[in-house]
Design a protein around this nucleic acid. Sequence first.
DNA 1: ATTTATTAACGGATCGGGTTCGTAAACATA
DNA 2: TATGTTTACGAACCCGATCCGTTAATAAAT
Lengths: 202, 202
Amino acid sequence: MSAARGRGRPRDPETDTAILTAALELFVERGVEGTSMEQVAKRAGVGKLTVYRRWNSKEELIAQAVEQWVSAEVTPSAADVYALSPQAIVEHVLPPAAEMAASVGFRALVARIMGCAVSHPELMAIYWKHYILPRRELAAAMLRRAQQDGTVAADADLDVLIDMMAGAVTYRVLQPDPPDATEMLRYLTSVYRQAGLYPPAG
Amino acid sequence: MSAARGRGRPRDPETDTAILTAALELFVERGVEGTSMEQVAKRAGVGKLTVYRRWNSKEELIAQAVEQWVSAEVTPSAADVYALSPQAIVEHVLPPAAEMAASVGFRALVARIMGCAVSHPELMAIYWKHYILPRRELAAAMLRRAQQDGTVAADADLDVLIDMMAGAVTYRVLQPDPPDATEMLRYLTSVYRQAGLYPPAG
DNA sequence: ATTTATTAACGGATCGGGTTCGTAAACATA
DNA sequence: TATGTTTACGAACCCGATCCGTTAATAAAT
């Protein structure tokens, strides 16, 4: 990946980002089937050959565009789980998560990725590996600690419980009439409370 | 809707179903953006005009095809909730639900509908109204009864809890490496148990 | 005979993938 | 600096496929 300083004219790195950005936008707007290399090149302000030189297929390009996007997000450190109080963690994690989940861009991208689950499993796999799994690790750590504290049943199936939490959010986000950030925060709080990660309302 | 016995040659009702079936198949295979009226006509073995005479646009056609499919499924009677024991209900509801959720057709259709949440909200709305809402009613009735029995917390937010249950299943179904029917039944049982609708494992 | 349904064919236009061509930008060597 | 080599780049091009919407001719009913 490093610029090995080849012989001839080096590739313009801004061209890469322009193509990836255009590809991601088009994927979100029109889906895989509705996107073409020609559209990508046009929107990126670039010749088609420039796209073809770097990616052999639409699928590969979109996959990398998605990977770049979902990998850009940072997960709160898993070490914090043991350094802070459970309640502090939750209160630290939830507001940015609500902001994220309520944003139109996130909603649109998640919808498209879910829509590809069967037809383009690679995209789902990328999303799963780079976005979901790190957050599951964090959630698992929180739940294990909550089990020690007794607020989550010791015999609970954590994988299922995590699915319920993450699934509820995804599900809610894709519903008709999706929530705004404020409502989403309330919703997340309710989910965490139901799971046993947050004390009952006072 | 009734055949009002018009003057000229009557429409062939089998043509309608052939078109709707073709449209649904193509939607599942290629999504809205990847489907065209021409493809639908070809797959249905029908002239394009025959399609255009009945539906003005691809979107309307696909919407009706989806509506027909999701409406074909029957919900277990909500009255049963009060006639049977909670455990009997669950044991009656879960196996067919697992079968359904694990089928490839269901998985593919749900993925496509989720994928349209932003770009074609009308499809999501149809799915929501005809498929999700009736099942939510049933789940709500079960949960209310469980609240009376004390297995679900009295102050639980049922809407959120239903989202967690339904969301977990949807989420699980769309994951890479989806479960088969047997695994799905185990999964559903675990979800119901976590929610308080099923007794802990013995 | 009239009305409607249906298929096949057509037309016009766009789009799509993939290539070619002339040019620009970085090297290398002298 | 000067010159040649190598790679990158955008625009134009080619050609087949597709797509939408219409028209014309036929079929099935009243």
